[in-house]
Simulated scan of single mutants.
Amino acid sequence: MEFGGEVLHSIFSEWGSTSGDERIPSWVWKLSKEHITKMLEGYEGDAHIRKDGSRVFTSINPNLIFSLVWLTRLKGINSRYIKRACKNMKGELQRREEYDLVMHGLVISSENYENNPMRTPHSKCIPLELVKT
């Protein structure tokens, strides 16, 4: 089956067009755990696998990562949020200015990939970053 450009554009525009405005469409929240797992497998191009087997998905968009943490935890997938700062020091060979970049990450535990039913207590917590007080 082939899809034209307009159909593909309408599907993928729901996800956002740049890394700063990426978001999870409302219909994704209704998907099953199996479908969410498959979605994450498709997103692994923007992730790396650690030596312990866990996957780390990174983005400069904190709202996307917070939403993914909510989504995975609500579906029973052990995940957590991490944040790290990246510095680019201006050197003789670089032609750009110094910058600081904050990267946000979703860590999916290796137990999700190994048929291990044990879960850490932390994985049952709901992230509070998106809850307004």
Rank of each mutant, 00 (worst) to 15 (best):
residue 1 M to I: 12
residue 1 M to W: 04
residue 2 E to H: 08
residue 4 G to F: 08
residue 6 E to M: 12
residue 6 E to F: 10
residue 8 L to A: 14
residue 9 H to Q: 09
residue 11 I to K: 05
residue 11 I to A: 10
residue 11 I to V: 14
residue 14 E to S: 11
residue 16 G to P: 07
residue 17 S to Y: 02
residue 21 D to F: 13
residue 21 D to T: 12
residue 25 P to T: 09
residue 26 S to W: 08
residue 27 W to A: 08
residue 28 V to I: 15
residue 30 K to T: 15
residue 32 S to K: 06
residue 32 S to M: 04
residue 35 H to Q: 15
residue 36 I to N: 02
residue 37 T to M: 15
residue 38 K to S: 14
residue 38 K to C: 09
residue 38 K to D: 14
residue 39 M to S: 10
residue 41 E to H: 14
residue 42 G to E: 11
residue 43 Y to F: 15
residue 47 A to V: 03
residue 49 I to V: 14
residue 50 R to D: 14
residue 52 D to F: 03
residue 53 G to E: 04
residue 53 G to K: 02
residue 57 F to I: 04
residue 57 F to D: 01
residue 58 T to N: 13
residue 59 S to L: 10
residue 60 I to S: 13
residue 60 I to R: 04
residue 60 I to N: 10
residue 61 N to V: 09
residue 62 P to I: 03
residue 64 L to M: 05
residue 64 L to D: 03
residue 67 S to T: 10
residue 67 S to M: 04
residue 67 S to R: 00
residue 70 W to F: 08
residue 71 L to C: 07
residue 72 T to P: 02
residue 73 R to Y: 03
residue 75 K to M: 00
residue 77 I to F: 02
residue 77 I to L: 03
residue 77 I to D: 00
residue 79 S to C: 06
residue 79 S to G: 03
residue 79 S to L: 00
residue 80 R to Q: 08
residue 80 R to D: 12
residue 80 R to C: 11
residue 86 C to T: 11
residue 87 K to R: 11
residue 88 N to Q: 09
residue 89 M to N: 06
residue 89 M to F: 12
residue 90 K to S: 13
residue 90 K to E: 15
residue 90 K to C: 12
residue 90 K to F: 11
residue 92 E to K: 02
residue 93 L to P: 01
residue 94 Q to N: 13
residue 94 Q to V: 09
residue 96 R to G: 06
residue 97 E to M: 05
residue 99 Y to D: 01
residue 100 D to P: 00
residue 101 L to Q: 08
residue 101 L to C: 10
residue 102 V to A: 08
residue 102 V to E: 09
residue 104 H to L: 01
residue 104 H to N: 04
residue 105 G to C: 13
residue 105 G to R: 05
residue 106 L to A: 03
residue 106 L to W: 01
residue 109 S to V: 00
residue 111 E to Y: 02
residue 112 N to P: 01
residue 115 N to G: 07
residue 115 N to S: 10
residue 116 N to F: 01
residue 117 P to L: 03
residue 118 M to S: 07
residue 120 T to K: 12
residue 122 H to L: 09
residue 122 H to I: 06
residue 122 H to P: 00
residue 124 K to W: 14
residue 124 K to N: 11
residue 125 C to R: 10
residue 127 P to V: 07
residue 129 E to W: 11
residue 130 L to Y: 00
residue 130 L to S: 07
residue 130 L to D: 04
residue 131 V to H: 03
residue 132 K to G: 02
residue 132 K to D: 04
